[in-house]
């Protein structure tokens, strides 16, 4: 139960920007309770992104890094120096393990079965190491990760994930995928039905009260606002539940508005005449 709560809390934090103050503090508190990040490498060139991400994150939240290097053949480690030199200089130790089954299975068994690994806060891996190259394959992969004892952070450079700038957290898309706002739709739907029922069942009273004019004019205006709030929310959730939503590009543009700073005109420097005697 505690793990479920932690995962949920982590999902919420990771689905927003790391830069927000307050949230970073919460994340630090969470991670300090459980000590380390598990960085999974597979010897691919793309590992560098995950390495950089983990280094930055560990610095920011003050957590340690533990490395699990999964390789098919321990004698062939083509990119190991590339990936690990940086880590060595940061004083981080690593563990190399032969990968007998799939990378996914190795991670799950490493985290879930090893009693010593209870201090891992979350796992960081490049999405391509797992063969996840699109939203679709990511979604399809989700159920396999549900049993993992801690959250999984996918670092990705795939165009679809650009909005998160290599902070792609697997949970980000799952939150939106899993949480279709059915509950909210039902609540607002019921409230909307109740409002309309009250209005239509008391037509005579309402009409006579609302049409008295003068300050009674506020009644229809207030009712219109109330309907727009309740029914507006309901209709919004209704289309979301049906899967009719805006393009992701539009949503990204909407959240990434930049503040405009007005250019002020500077006074022109006055020409000066200097004479040397």
């Amino acid at each position: 139960m505690e793990i479920k709560k932690l995962v949920q809390q982590f999902e919420d934090l990771m689905s927003t920007s790391f830069l927000e103050e307050g949230k970073l503090e919460t994340l630090k508190r969470m991670v300090n309770n459980r000590h380390r990040i598990l960085l999974v490498l597979t010897g691919m060139e793309v590992d560098m992104d995950a390495v950089n991400y983990s280094l930055n994150l560990s610095r920011r939240i003050g957590a340690g890094i533990k490395i699990l290097y999964l390789t098919r053949d321990i004698s062939e480690l083509p990119y190991i120096d590339n990936s690990l030199n940086k880590l060595k200089s940061a004083g981080i130790s690593y563990q190399i393990k032969v990968c007998n089954s799939s990378v996914k299975e190795e991670i799950v068994s490493y985290i879930n079965n090893d009693e010593k690994e209870t201090d891992i806060s979350f796992v960081v891996i490049d999405s391509r190491d797992l063969g996840i190259r699109s939203l679709r394959s990511q979604k399809a992969d989700y159920h396999d990760w549900e049993k993992l004892r801690c959250p999984l952070v996918l670092v990705s450079k795939t165009p679809k994930f650009i909005s998160l700038k290599r902070r792609m957290v697997m949970t980000q898309n799952y939150v939106s995928m899993r949480k279709k706002p059915i509950g909210k739709m039902v609540i607002y739907g019921l409230a909307s039905v109740a409002m309309y029922a009250a209005l239509l069942m008391n037509q005579a009273t309402i009409t006579s009260l609302f049409t008295r004019g003068a300050w009674y004019a506020l009644f229809p205006i207030a009712t219109a606002f109330a309907i727009s709030f309740v029914h507006g929310h309901f209709t919004g959730y209704f289309w979301s539940v049906l899967g009719v939503e805006a393009t992701k590009k539009a949503l990204r543009t909407g959240t990434q508005e930049q503040k405009h700073t007005e250019k002020r005109e500077r006074p022109q420097p006055q020409p000066r005449l200097r004479a040397k005697l």
């Binding site: 009409t207 609302f210 004019g213 004019a217 009712t223």
Partner: peptide
């Protein structure tokens, strides 16, 4: 319009 009691809120709703 509401000041003159002309809004039929049932229709609007």
């Amino acid at each position: 319009y509401a000041l003159h009691g002309l809004v039929d809120i049932r229709l609007s709703a």
